[in-house]
Amino acid sequence: MSDPAASAAVQPYLLLSAVLFCIGLYGVFSRLNAVGVLMSLELLLNACNINLIAFSRYCDRGVELARFGGTALGAQGQVLALLSITIAAAEAAVGLAIVISIYRSFRHINVDDLDLLRW
């Protein structure tokens, strides 16, 4: 069941996801403006979603259905990815609203210079 040949089926997806995650991580570290940081965060979330869908396709053991009965196979990771996409949409909306609100007060969105609460 877990022979090396089958194990290699999921690996390209995980490697792609790891590379995408690291590019996003670099973006979060290096971007100066808050919109750039938020866009890099979207890359991070998408890397996680690729992982979830890949595991859902290849490594799912199924989830017991209490009310409908039986076992749903290959659904667990997809449900998680759906919730993750939903939360990412909410995060983008709130994040960009905060960025616009910050821009109104400071006339810039340079994350290095937003030190109002730092003493």
């Binding site: 069941m1 877990s2 090396p4 089958a6 194990s7 089926a9 999921v10 690996q11 995980l14 490697l15 790891a18 590379v19 995650f21 690291c22 991580l25 290849y58 490594c59 799912d60 053991r61 196979l73 290959g74």
Partner: peptide, 19 residues
Amino acid sequence: SGALLVWAINDTRWPVTLR
């Protein structure tokens, strides 16, 4: 962190069930 992730991915035997 990318090197760590790639090493971990290549080092793990994933319990894949092809269906």
